[in-house]
Design a protein around this nucleic acid. Structure first.
Length: 431
RNA sequence: GUGAGUGUAGCUCAGCUGGUGGCAGCACCGGGUUGUGGCCUCGGCGGUCGUGGGUUCAAGUCCCUCCACUCACCCCA
């Protein structure tokens, strides 16, 4: 095929689909407002080092999925948290306010093989609470995600785990390695490698063989230190208090190295091989690691394409939503068209949605266009009307039409029309 | 990076064991209504059958190459 097309894994979002995006963005924005979160927008390109240091050198994202301009040392962001932390540190935001509650939405880039619910350019909604260490903050953030899904009418379930902290995780790690080394020849190839590079990942291998072996492995939830245990307990109590159901999942291990303590995922079984619609966790050491102050944080991201896939399933009725139009101006001659062109300008200046066609089509064709654009009214200006200075104003729903005087200046005419249209649109809404 | 599947009109698809690309549906344009939309009806536009080669009298159909897409592995949102 010689025609140009979008590159693999990069997708157009077409007008027919855009209402879903706008609804998602509007709902997310409003929920953030209710939770006292402020929007931040960071650049798409960052120094490669930022992602290597935050996400972790040995992670799949950094090892093989980043779009990197090697000669410039720059990378297109594969996720949002690292950039937000960089901005937080760079602008000394912790000095302005001890607690920063931030969110952002935008495109992320990962060079993976595309499949259902996975693109190379995809969009995330991302929320972060930086500063506090209290487990109630974890619960509040989870509650925010929970509310977003619920207001969008999407059913997901919540998987919850704790990854421990630098005090207790190493000991657990050693125990895990020791336990698995005995059976390592039964593990899959990947897991044998992981056993020493990133042993916790063996826990969420999906291969049945590994799952069986891992079923007997110790649970990290039993290996937490005192502080982590109490943090996790209070988090669960708070979720119970808020009535948010969750599944404790000791096998859920997230692929970004910066997580500590709380980790969670919002999952579904409706997206083929992709189960995670959203996910996140606490990252208590990340900011210091990046050279910032010793403050904690917790955040999560939602895959917007995945969420929209779920929203689509609910949309029984196809609300292809061609935008409504207040009035269509049908001109039937050069002079008439000139008049309508000016009228349209004035009407639009008054905030009305106006459509007209310049190609000199028949009235029938123009009425068809008006119907397609869901015009509430059509103003017909033909030869007779132009001569008699009286146009025809047709209510497209009731099919009733009457005269509209073309006397006075075009501006005056548009003002008179606007009054009629505003009065009329109120009536036609309930229908 | 690996595996499987699929490429026919703008979209959704027919096309049998090779024998002329479909009055196919949707959409689009026009007529029926001398100047009035949706429904109906009639007509029209629209395709180097993904690409390049091969087999054959004959290839959308069979074989190979490449390309693209889809799904899955891996991993993640």
């Amino acid at each position: 095929m010689t025609t140009l097309q979008a590159i693999n894994g990069f997708k157009d979002i077409l007008p027919d689909q855009i209402h879903l995006w706008q609804r998602l963005e509007a709902t997310a924005t409003d929920i953030c407002r209710r939770f006292g979160m402020r929007e931040i927008r960071t650049p798409i390109l960052e120094k490669t080092e930022l992602f290597v240091r935050s996400i972790g050198e040995a992670t799949d994202v950094v090892e093989k999925e980043m779009y990197t301009f090697a000669d410039k040392g720059l990378t297109m962001r594969p996720e949002a948290t690292a950039s937000i932390m960089r901005a937080f540190i760079e602008h000394g935001m912790h000095v302005q306010q001890p607690v920063q509650r931030l969110y952002t939405m935008g495109p992320m880039f990962r060079h993976e093989r595309p499949q259902k619910g996975r693109l190379r350019q995809f969009h995330q909604f991302d929320a972060e609470i930086i500063g506090p260490t209290e487990p109630q903050q974890d619960a509040e953030l989870i509650a925010m995600g929970h509310l977003l899904f619920s207001e969008l009418g999407v059913k997901v379930s919540l998987e919850l785990n704790s990854m421990g902290c630098p005090k207790c995780r190493p000991a657990f790690r050693q125990r895990l390695i020791a336990g698995l080394e005995g059976v390592q020849d039964q593990l899959c190839e990947d897991c044998r490698r992981r056993l020493h590079t990133n042993p916790l990942r063996v826990l969420d291998c999906k291969k049945p063989g590994c799952r069986a072996l891992v079923a007997d492995a110790p649970s990290i939830q039993d290996a937490l230190c005192e502080n982590c245990t109490s943090h996790f307990a209070t988090l669960r109590d708070t979720l119970d208090l808020l009535g948010i159901p969750y599944n404790l999942n000791r096998f859920m291990v997230r692929g970004l190295d910066y997580y500590t303590r709380t980790t969670f995922e919002f999952v579904t079984d409706q997206l083929g091989a992709q189960s995670a619609v959203g996910g996140g966790g606490r990252y208590d050491g990340l900011i210091a690691e990046l050279g910032g102050p010793a403050v904690s944080g917790i955040g999560f991201a939602i895959g917007m394409e995945r969420l929209i896939l779920l929203m689509e399933q609910n949309e029984k009725e196809n609300s292809a939503a061609l935008s409504d139009t207040d009035i269509y101006l049908a001109a039937l001659g050069p002079e008439e068209l000139k008049h309508c062109t000016l009228l349209a300008q004035f009407l639009r200046q008054q905030g009305l949605r106006v459509a007209l066609d310049y190609s000199g089509r028949s009235l029938k064709a123009q009425m068809k266009i008006a119907g397609r654009m869901q015009a509430h009214y059509t103003l017909i200006v033909g030869e007779q009307e132009w001569a008699g200075k009286e146009a025809i104003l047709r209510d497209m729903q009731t099919q009733q039409q009457g005269g509209f005087s073309l006397s006075g200046s075009p501006l005056e005419q548009s003002e008179r029309l606007a009054v009629v249209l505003r009065a009329g649109s109120g009536k036609s809404d309930p229908a």
